[in-house]
Computed example of a mutant assay.
Amino acid sequence: MDANKPIVTLIKMTTRVPSFFLSLFLFKAFFSFAALASQAQSNNADIPKELVVAARGMPEIWAEQVGKQSCDRYKLPEQHDLTRGFYESLIACRALKAAGIDTRFKFIAPPSHARAIRMVEEGKVDLLSESAWLSDSNPELVYISDAVVREGRFVKGLYALKGHPILASETPEQDYKNYRAITVEFWHHDKQALKSITDNIVYTAQHNRAHEMLLAGRADYTLYKFAEQENLETNVEGVPVLPVQGIKVALPGSRHFLVNAQKPYADNLTKALNKGLMILREEQDIEDFLGVSPTAVEDWILLNP
Results as ranks from 00 to 15, higher is better:
1 M>W: 11
5 K>P: 14
5 K>R: 14
9 T>N: 15
20 F>G: 09
20 F>M: 12
24 L>C: 10
28 K>Y: 15
30 F>M: 14
31 F>S: 09
32 S>N: 15
33 F>T: 13
34 A>G: 14
35 A>Y: 13
39 Q>V: 08
48 P>G: 03
59 P>N: 02
60 E>S: 07
63 A>K: 11
63 A>C: 06
66 V>M: 03
67 G>N: 05
69 Q>G: 05
71 C>A: 14
74 Y>N: 02
75 K>V: 11
79 Q>K: 15
79 Q>W: 12
83 T>A: 06
84 R>H: 12
84 R>D: 14
85 G>H: 01
89 S>Y: 00
90 L>V: 04
91 I>K: 00
94 R>S: 02
94 R>K: 12
96 L>K: 00
97 K>V: 06
99 A>K: 02
99 A>Y: 00
100 G>V: 00
110 P>Q: 03
113 H>W: 12
113 H>I: 07
114 A>V: 14
116 A>I: 00
116 A>D: 01
116 A>C: 01
118 R>W: 10
121 E>Y: 01
122 E>Y: 09
122 E>R: 13
126 D>P: 06
129 S>W: 00
130 E>A: 07
132 A>G: 11
132 A>H: 10
144 I>F: 01
144 I>Q: 03
147 A>Q: 07
148 V>D: 06
149 V>I: 12
150 R>L: 10
151 E>G: 06
153 R>P: 15
156 K>P: 12
157 G>R: 02
157 G>S: 04
161 L>C: 06
161 L>H: 06
167 L>R: 07
168 A>H: 12
171 T>M: 10
172 P>F: 00
172 P>W: 01
173 E>K: 12
177 K>H: 08
178 N>A: 13
182 I>P: 10
182 I>F: 04
184 V>S: 04
190 D>L: 01
191 K>F: 08
191 K>E: 12
192 Q>N: 10
192 Q>K: 12
193 A>Y: 03
194 L>Q: 05
197 I>G: 07
197 I>W: 07
197 I>V: 13
205 A>D: 14
205 A>L: 15
207 H>L: 07
208 N>Y: 09
214 L>P: 04
214 L>F: 02
219 A>L: 03
223 L>N: 03
223 L>A: 02
225 K>G: 13
226 F>C: 05
227 A>N: 07
229 Q>T: 13
229 Q>K: 15
232 L>E: 08
232 L>H: 07
233 E>T: 10
236 V>A: 13
238 G>Q: 11
240 P>W: 09
242 L>D: 05
243 P>A: 00
244 V>K: 00
246 G>Q: 06
247 I>K: 03
251 L>Y: 07
252 P>L: 02
255 R>W: 12
259 V>Y: 04
259 V>N: 08
259 V>E: 09
265 Y>T: 00
268 N>A: 15
268 N>W: 13
276 G>E: 00
277 L>Q: 09
278 M>W: 13
281 R>M: 06
281 R>D: 10
281 R>E: 11
286 I>C: 05
287 E>F: 01
292 V>N: 08
302 L>K: 02
302 L>Y: 04
